[in-house]
């Protein structure tokens, strides 16, 4: 074939007609990436999802900016708890600010816990209904009649949900780390490691935040996707996940109040379990680590919920083996 002929795309339809495709097919990894991309865009399809994500990111951005500004104003405490907004007032009840010096790891922990809860809320409304929706609208059949395996579909869904979740978890927390850094930096007492090792400490803190965000986002996405299988109606999927979280909380509360089994109760609490990565890493980094039993219980809880989510994964595979035919409209 001449060079000129090679340069002409070989994938044209005849004018007004049909022609076969004779171009190269891309490898599977690229197909999966495009699937993840479409699924990621799919997550922000609705206006509430766009608004929710924007608020989720804008709120800590504004808070961070406000905290930095306030730290330069005279006669006001530098601590995060000194800001007069509702978030900080709420944090005041959680964090003893008196005599506090250096980086406020506990503030980050609280922020992380709040973000994990918000993420769970977002996953409940945006991720949990996805499988039921695709089944309801017959899209599963469109996916599986193309060179896409069920495991590809699930992995792409998980990757998109967890990727967005990671971003939403990481950015606000990193912002708070930056606020702390701007206030304390490498000053004496600014971080537990003295001198230049402090640089490593701050970097390690960023890595910790990112790793924890990944762990929480993956676990939450997995639980949300699995919860979506419990129902056929997409509208009921958030309720299924909500029921799972509230059910675990209720069970935890009953065990704690009626039987005094605090450890077991905390282990069963899904929200608490999702914070296990953070507990582990603050236990390693913080000068005031969480008590060891709290860490152990949270880790056991995470293991328990991971096992449950794995069971959910098998349910997902089974659910997708014979995709129901939908009659809905896109």
């Amino acid at each position: 074939m001449s060079e000129q002929a090679k340069s002409v795309p070989q994938l044209v339809f005849e004018p007004g007609g049909y022609a076969k495709f004779s171009g190269e097919q891309v490898p599977l990894s690229q197909r999966l990436l495009s699937l993840v991309g479409v699924f990621a865009r799919d997550a922000f399809r609705t206006t509430p999802a766009k608004l929710g994500a924007a608020l989720y990111l804008v709120a800590p951005l504004c808070l961070g900016a406000w905290l930095v500004i306030r730290s330069y104003l005279p006669d006001l405490p530098v601590s995060l708890g000194g800001a007069g907004d509702a978030y900080s007032l709420w944090k005041l009840t959680k964090i003893p600010t008196a005599g506090q010096a250096g980086c406020d790891i506990q503030a980050l922990e609280v922020s992380f816990a709040v973000n994990a809860f918000l993420l769970l809320l977002g996953q409940a409304t945006q991720v949990a209904p996805l499988l039921a929706r695709d089944a309801h609208q017959g899209a599963l059949l469109l996916y599986f009649s193309r060179p896409v395996l069920r495991s590809h579909y699930l992995l792409a869904r998980l990757a998109a949900a967890a990727g967005i979740g990671t971003a939403l978890m990481t950015l606000p927390s990193l912002l708070l780390v930056l606020v702390e850094l701007s206030q304390h930096g490498l000053q004496p007492g600014g971080c537990p490691w003295p001198g230049l090792a402090g640089v490593l400490w701050w970097l390690a803190l960023c890595a910790v935040v990112a790793l924890c965000a990944v762990a929480v986002a993956v676990a939450t996405s997995l639980v949300a996707l699995a919860a979506g299988v419990l129902v056929r109606n997409p509208s009921a999927a958030p309720l299924a996940l909500g029921g799972l979280v509230l059910g675990s909380l209720a069970l935890s509360w009953i065990l704690q109040s009626s039987y005094g089994r605090e450890s077991l109760a905390r282990g069963l609490d899904l929200h608490h379990a999702l914070q296990a990565p953070w507990f582990l890493l603050t236990w390693l980094l913080s000068p005031n680590p969480p008590p060891k039993p709290v860490l152990e219980v949270a880790l056991l809880g995470l293991l328990l919920w991971t096992a449950l989510a794995t069971l959910g994964w098998f349910l997902l595979q089974r659910f997708l083996r014979n995709p129901p035919l939908g009659k809905g409209r896109a």
Partner: peptide, 25 residues
């Protein structure tokens, strides 16, 4: 397929592009 099924939330062109990419283009 027989069913009234399409990829949710995409306009006409994106539906077809998505289908093509899934098929390896």
């Amino acid at each position: 397929p027989e069913d009234d099924s399409l990829f949710p939330g995409l306009h006409g062109l994106d539906q077809v592009i998505h289908a093509a990419q899934l098929s390896g283009l």
